[in-house]
């Protein structure tokens, strides 16, 4: 049984983006670039996800040089969660590939 629940795409990509400190707009831009424009997050969705992740202590705010901008970074717990999710997704993909190869034979 998984220690952590499966992540939504939005949460997955936010956690993935926050290996280093980034502000909100930069997170949006990074996710858009990573997904070749497939995920173009709205400001409301971004805010909701950042609030939820901060409450769960997967991410935390850090001060930046610009007082009008606040940066976010992944916590240790957040890193553990995303590593767990990557393992889960790898298992899914590997099983899918093996299964379809078997079917082709």
């Amino acid at each position: 049984m998984n220690k952590y629940p499966a992540l939504t795409e939005t949460v997955f990509y936010i956690l993935l983006s926050l290996s280093g400190p980034l502000h909100g707009y930069a997170i949006m831009q990074n996710i858009k670039a990573l997904t070749n424009g497939r995920i173009n997050m709205g400001a409301g969705t971004l805010y909701g996800a950042l609030s939820a992740l901060t409450e769960k202590e997967y991410i935390t705010e850090v001060r930046s040089d610009d007082p009008s901008k606040r940066l976010y970074i992944r916590t240790e717990l957040g890193t553990e969660v995303i590593e767990n999710e990557i393992k889960r997704l790898n298992e899914l993909t590997q099983n899918a590939v093996l299964y379809f190869k078997r079917e082709e034979r």
């Binding site: 939504t8 795409e9 939005t10 949006m28 831009q29 858009k32 995920i39 173009n40 997050m41 709205g42 400001a43 409301g44 969705t45 909701g48 996800a49």
Partner: peptide, 22 residues
């Protein structure tokens, strides 16, 4: 909130979780 139509993403809520919360 006023969102410029020419901004990168005019849709304020773009996933089911945020739409559900609203």
């Amino acid at each position: 909130i006023n969102v410029p139509v020419d901004s990168e993403n005019i849709d304020f809520l773009t996933d089911n979780q945020s739409k559900l919360d609203f």
